[in-house]
């Protein structure tokens, strides 16, 4: 997974702001979403993000997998992240 070319993510006190500067659309997430976004920037693969969060919070990865995938689906729908072949 990769963020679309002109997408900028900035951590904020409430979570994060995602700015799709090409279409000039702004989105916000809470702290949980911000953490996932931050990991997505580093890890690229959803499974790696899930594993990292499971390890950090000492929980079964299945518990958080749907949340991570749910957010990723929304990000894909909004054109914020894309599979590498879509870039």
């Amino acid at each position: 997974m990769e963020f679309a070319k002109h997408v900028k993510v900035r951590q904020e006190k409430f979570g994060a702001v995602v700015f799709e500067t090409l279409r000039e659309k702004v989105f916000v997430t809470n702290e949980t979403g911000a953490e996932i976004l931050s990991l997505l920037e580093e890890k690229e693969e959803p499974k790696e993000v899930t594993a990292e969060l499971a390890k950090k919070y000492c929980v079964d990865s299945k518990l958080i997998e749907s949340d991570v995938n749910g957010l990723i689906s929304i990000l894909e729908e909004k054109g914020i992240i894309k599979n590498k072949e879509q870039q």
Binding site: F27, T32, G33, I36, Y57, L63
Partner: peptide, 14 residues
């Protein structure tokens, strides 16, 4: 923990 992680926050326009 589950609640803390839940991104049902969704992404929303600002």
């Amino acid at each position: 923990i589950e609640n803390e992680l839940r991104p049902s926050l969704t992404v929303e326009q600002v």
